[in-house]
Write a protein that binds this DNA or RNA. Structure first.
Lengths: 342, 342
DNA sequence: CTGAAAGCGCTTACAG
DNA sequence: CTGAAAGCGCTTACAG
């Protein structure tokens, strides 16, 4: 008999008790005699019995599982978020199943559907688009849901995210102080909150310095490297290219670096670069990249907390954590343009 | 009534047929009259019915789910592997649940256990250690298992991996040609196959060139960044530090870069660096890193193919794909030491 | 082509 | 403290 084929009946037979008693000791129910408990535990050990989680879930109507749908596993930001989510969930006795949307709404829906079919206890999602009907239905149906990083406006669901507006303002002030005036952005999809928010914050910050953001200085990206490459190429082909390009995520910054390099240009001498999201590699790129860092691990923990609060009947809290500017050398920080020092 | 609470009975009532008939049309069973089919489909649509995967799994004894236990999600190599595995599995009608071992054997076992409890149909694992009894039991119990990247010797399970020996040889020849003689390695855990294999291949290749590999030139790492940092610091403190450090994975290479930078040293002028595993950032580091690239996506596809073959009763195949050397500039490639050219 | 019924492996009132 | 029994939502021989 293979281990995976031994069931609760086998344990009961081996221990000389009923399956009810076996179930009780397995679930730590108080009213079991010490003698029964010992015999059951011995039998479990001897048979190598492991409860069938599928059967248990069907019966109890809970899976102790959370779904996490992220926009892109290849993005180190989401990968770190996923790691922190899993860790926090595990500490609270939950497993997590990750679905990778690859920034594609239909793939996102595929995963949401699969997760719902599996009857996960709750869902954490960083939506790839502005409002999948499927997700809206899930909310209406009462599935515990929490948005993390990105969210869908108008849906009454807790949101755990970081606010980058202040950091974007700091970045623009920093660039302005360096003497830069022609500032461009590679934006994420307008259908995502982080996509539109970052452009808006950028535009607003520019305005504070009396700088306009012409359409030609807005590259439409999709948070993936290729789009950063293409947008940068368009910038470089402009009669008057920008002095600095701000990529709204780290992958598009990678694409920008690729394009700049392909044109035989150098950062920051020929063009400056800054990125939203900080990753360990930015310290070692040529040059080190000035970036906006999110408190990613904390975000993951807070999201799990909110979701489990919701699942277990407590009132979940929305959480907004600040992002912060990390100055390095990709915007010409070494050689200030306005003052000529030794 | 919330969507998630509508069951097959509700659909049957709505359509005016039995649950058996509903089940048949849902499963594409041939013997259902067109009229019944239409009414069932209409009812499903009207009610927004979705089958409960938990109940179905309990009944059919299959979950159409694969488990994937990887050593470290924060490692871009595994992240790419995971992505390709999920993609290939999805194409074949399977879901995948990822477990992240973080290079910790006990965490690996936690995930294997959880996955087994969930009755996944098969398991893909890149073992963090040399032989978890749990995994051995699973194999004995008949759980379909395939090793990917790393494997456990002596266990009769298909292995899908890439062979880096040839590429390591190429790397050593390349370094030798550049005039380097003092070559060090930051190895992975000896308990992992890739950990020991890469040192062995390195040692052997050095021997072919008449070079020894002293113990002081072997840094014991664990495939994570911190260990790369520490090993590199030890190298730098040596009376005669190595001319080139070869990190057995990309994360330890990152750690090495951190340490070198912290000492105010430059790559490759002060010390050279090469890495196993290639990642997009290596093109943009300062300097671009010479690395050994694995055919990661293909590995993932082959692993899924092997596992599903095994699950569906076909004979699974072990697969070994070659890795290849990608020369960049982190080992002094710009300024050959032996010949002085213009 | 269709339905009644058994059963997948558990948990949990209910009665003792 | 314990066991017999019902039932979670499906699928699938079996009989018609």
């Amino acid at each position: 008999m293979t281990p995976s084929s031994v069931g609760i009946k086998d344990v009961a037979a081996e221990a000389g008790v009923s399956v009810a008693t076996v179930s009780r000791v397995l679930n730590g129910h108080p009213s079991v005699s010490p003698a029964s408990r010992t015999r059951v535990l011995t039998a479990v050990e001897a048979l190598g019995y492991r409860p069938n989680a599928v059967a248990r879930s069907l019966r109890t109507d809970q899976t102790r599982t959370l779904g996490l749908v992220i926009s892109d596993v290849l993005n180190p930001y989401f990968t770190e978020l996923a790691r922190s989510v899993e860790e926090a969930a595990r500490a609270l006795g939950y497993s997590v199943i990750i679905g990778n949307a690859d920034e594609r709404p239909e793939l996102q829906d595929h995963h949401v559907r699969t997760l719902l079919d599996r009857r996960i206890d709750g869902l954490l999602v960083s939506p790839t688009d502005g409002g999948s009907p499927l997700m809206l239905d899930a909310v209406r149906a009462g599935t515990p849901l929490v948005f993390v990083d990105r969210w869908i406006p108008g849906v009454d669901v807790p949101v755990v995210r970081s606010d980058g507006r202040r950091a974007v303002r700091d970045l623009v002030a920093h660039l302005h102080g360096l003497g830069h005036r022609r500032l461009a952005i590679i934006a994420g999809p307008a259908a995502t909150t982080t996509g539109s928010e970052r452009v808006e914050a950028f535009r607003e910050a520019l305005r504070e310095h009396g700088i306009a953001l012409p359409d030609t200085y807005i590259g439409q990206g999709d948070f993936q490297a290729d789009s950063g490459r293409r947008a940068t190429e368009r910038f470089l082909a402009l009669p008057e290219p920008p002095e600095v390009v701000f990529a709204a995520d780290n992958l598009m910054a990678l694409g920008a670096l690729d394009a700049i390099r392909a044109h035989g240009l150098r950062v920051p001498d020929d063009i400056g670069l800054a990125a939203f999201d900080d990753i360990p590699w930015f310290v070692h790129t040529d040059p080190p990249v000035t970036a906006i860092a999110q408190p990613t691990a904390e975000l993951g923990r807070a999201a799990v907390q909110a979701l489990i609060d919701r699942i277990e009947g407590r009132r979940p809290q929305s959480v907004t954590l600040p992002a912060r500017l990390v100055v390095r050398r990709s915007c010409g920080e070494n050689a200030p343009v306005r003052r000529s020092n030794p």
